[in-house]
Simulated assay, not measured.
Amino acid sequence: MTIAEVLKATSAHTGIPVQELTGPMRSKPVVRARQLAQLMARMHVKTPSGKPPSFPVIARAFGGRDHSTVQHGVTTALKLIDDDADFRRHAASLNSKLMADDSAGGHWGRV
């Protein structure tokens, strides 16, 4: 699975275009969807060595953001999974879809 495929799946799931997920827009729905996509990229994309892509690699795919922005996005998404039932449902649903498309699977603990 690639980061581009995660972005496309997140876009289809949330209804937010890939261009907005990777662009500068900072409205709450876009930011939440972007954070979800960053988490899913970390969970489902694997390098040739079988490890998750680095934060700088994900950051470049998300419009050239700083790697610390992606770290923050992943951390925030994990916190939202714990604290926000609606976000948790969206994350679980997208995770299930990506797992069906991805033999590597994804688990919250493997970030």
Rank of each mutant, 00 (worst) to 15 (best):
residue 9 A to Q: 13
residue 34 R to H: 10
residue 34 R to V: 09
residue 97 K to F: 06
residue 59 A to E: 01
residue 94 L to I: 12
residue 4 A to T: 15
residue 39 L to N: 02
residue 18 V to W: 03
residue 7 L to P: 12
residue 1 M to F: 03
residue 34 R to L: 04
residue 61 A to I: 03
residue 92 A to W: 03
residue 98 L to E: 06
residue 12 A to K: 15
residue 23 G to C: 14
residue 76 T to A: 00
residue 99 M to R: 07
residue 83 D to G: 04
residue 44 H to V: 08
residue 64 G to Y: 07
residue 25 M to S: 10
residue 63 G to K: 02
residue 99 M to K: 06
residue 70 V to M: 00
residue 91 A to L: 06
residue 71 Q to D: 00
residue 55 F to Y: 12
residue 50 G to L: 09
residue 87 F to N: 01
residue 46 K to Q: 14
residue 10 T to P: 07
residue 83 D to F: 02
residue 76 T to H: 00
residue 44 H to L: 11
residue 4 A to N: 15
residue 86 D to S: 09
residue 94 L to C: 09
residue 108 W to H: 11
residue 4 A to C: 14
residue 67 H to Q: 09
residue 2 T to R: 14
residue 15 G to W: 10
residue 5 E to Q: 15
residue 107 H to M: 09
residue 34 R to P: 05
residue 15 G to K: 10
residue 69 T to G: 02
residue 56 P to T: 07
residue 15 G to F: 11
residue 41 A to H: 01
residue 100 A to D: 10
residue 29 P to Y: 05
residue 1 M to P: 05
residue 48 P to C: 03
residue 88 R to A: 10
residue 62 F to I: 08
residue 42 R to C: 06
residue 71 Q to Y: 01
residue 34 R to Y: 05
residue 44 H to E: 06
residue 8 K to Q: 15
residue 14 T to R: 12
residue 19 Q to L: 13
residue 42 R to T: 08
residue 50 G to W: 09
residue 63 G to S: 09
residue 9 A to P: 10
residue 38 Q to M: 14
residue 74 V to K: 02
residue 89 R to L: 12
residue 99 M to I: 08
residue 13 H to I: 05
residue 76 T to D: 00
residue 53 P to S: 13
residue 4 A to L: 15
residue 65 R to C: 03
residue 101 D to A: 15
residue 46 K to R: 15
residue 18 V to M: 06
residue 100 A to S: 10
residue 35 Q to W: 01
residue 36 L to E: 08
residue 93 S to T: 15
residue 66 D to W: 02
residue 41 A to N: 01
residue 87 F to A: 04
residue 8 K to G: 09
residue 86 D to W: 00
residue 85 A to I: 10
residue 16 I to V: 14
residue 107 H to L: 09
residue 53 P to N: 10
residue 34 R to A: 07
residue 36 L to Q: 08
residue 94 L to N: 06
residue 43 M to A: 12
residue 29 P to I: 10
residue 92 A to K: 14
residue 28 K to D: 13
residue 28 K to P: 05
residue 6 V to W: 06
residue 19 Q to E: 15
residue 83 D to N: 11
residue 80 L to W: 03
residue 108 W to Q: 12
residue 84 D to R: 04
residue 90 H to S: 08
residue 37 A to M: 08
residue 47 T to L: 11
residue 105 G to C: 07
residue 49 S to V: 11
residue 38 Q to T: 10
residue 43 M to Q: 13
residue 111 V to R: 05
residue 54 S to I: 04
residue 21 L to V: 11
residue 34 R to Q: 11
residue 84 D to A: 02
residue 58 I to T: 07
residue 42 R to Y: 04
residue 103 S to Y: 03
residue 96 S to K: 13
residue 21 L to H: 06
residue 9 A to C: 13
residue 23 G to M: 13
residue 61 A to S: 13
residue 96 S to G: 14
residue 88 R to D: 02
residue 78 L to N: 05
residue 74 V to N: 01
residue 24 P to S: 15
residue 97 K to Q: 14
residue 69 T to N: 02
residue 106 G to H: 04
residue 88 R to P: 01
residue 81 I to V: 15
residue 32 R to H: 08
residue 5 E to I: 07
